[in-house]
Simulated assay, not measured.
Amino acid sequence: MKNETKRDVFEKALREWDDLVHSWGLQGEETHGGCEFDPILIKYKKDYDAALPDDLPVVPKAVGEILQSAHCQTNLLDVLDTAKIGYKVSDTLEWIYSNQNTFARAWLDGYVVEEEK
């Protein structure tokens, strides 16, 4: 199994594209060491950096609100405590207990709020 990240694959693809462009002599400013495609590749790198990670957990709106309100807390137990105190027995608390791994991932990595039906 490889330990290659999506970032590694993306950067490899950009390097290979850049090599291909140069090998075909498509660089317009070769005397300056640049390529007319460089601004496009730089834009893709910036867009990639700004994009959300892949496969973020999807949580209900009420769970997202709990996560947002608990943002400044330093550990997951405090977040769960906040959820338990603020949401007595409810569908939201039941969702958190039933989906503890998803909730933990959402707290660590970020999340997407599911669209209302």
Rank of each mutant, 00 (worst) to 15 (best):
Q73W: 10
Y111K: 03
F37W: 02
I96E: 08
T74M: 09
D109W: 08
L93I: 14
W95R: 03
V58W: 01
A62V: 12
P39E: 02
K61L: 09
T31N: 08
C35H: 01
G34Y: 01
W24E: 14
L76W: 09
Y48S: 04
I66E: 14
R105W: 03
H71N: 14
N3E: 14
E4D: 11
K117E: 08
D91E: 14
I66C: 11
W107K: 06
G64A: 05
Y44T: 03
T102C: 08
V89K: 15
Q27Y: 02
E94A: 14
L26Y: 04
V21W: 06
Q100S: 10
K84P: 04
V63W: 04
D18W: 05
P60W: 03
A70H: 13
G34P: 01
E114Y: 01
V58Q: 03
E11H: 08
H32P: 02
G86L: 12
D8R: 06
L67H: 05
S98G: 15
D54S: 09
T5I: 07
D55H: 12
S69K: 07
I96Y: 07
I40E: 02
D81Q: 14
G110Y: 09
G33E: 01
D54Y: 05
K6P: 07
L108H: 11
Q68S: 11
R105H: 08
A83I: 07
T74R: 08
I40R: 00
K43W: 06
L41C: 02
G34Q: 01
A51T: 06
N101K: 15
G25N: 06
C72S: 13
V113Q: 02
Y87K: 13
H71K: 15
S90Y: 11
S90D: 12
L80Y: 13
C72M: 10
V58R: 03
N99I: 03
K6N: 12
A104L: 09
F103I: 07
V89E: 15
D81Y: 15
E29L: 04
Q73V: 14
Q27D: 12
W17P: 00
H71E: 15
N3Q: 13
K2W: 13
E11R: 08
C35E: 00
L56Q: 04
Y48D: 10
K84E: 14
R7Q: 10
N3L: 11
G25M: 03
H32Q: 13
E114G: 05
T92Y: 09
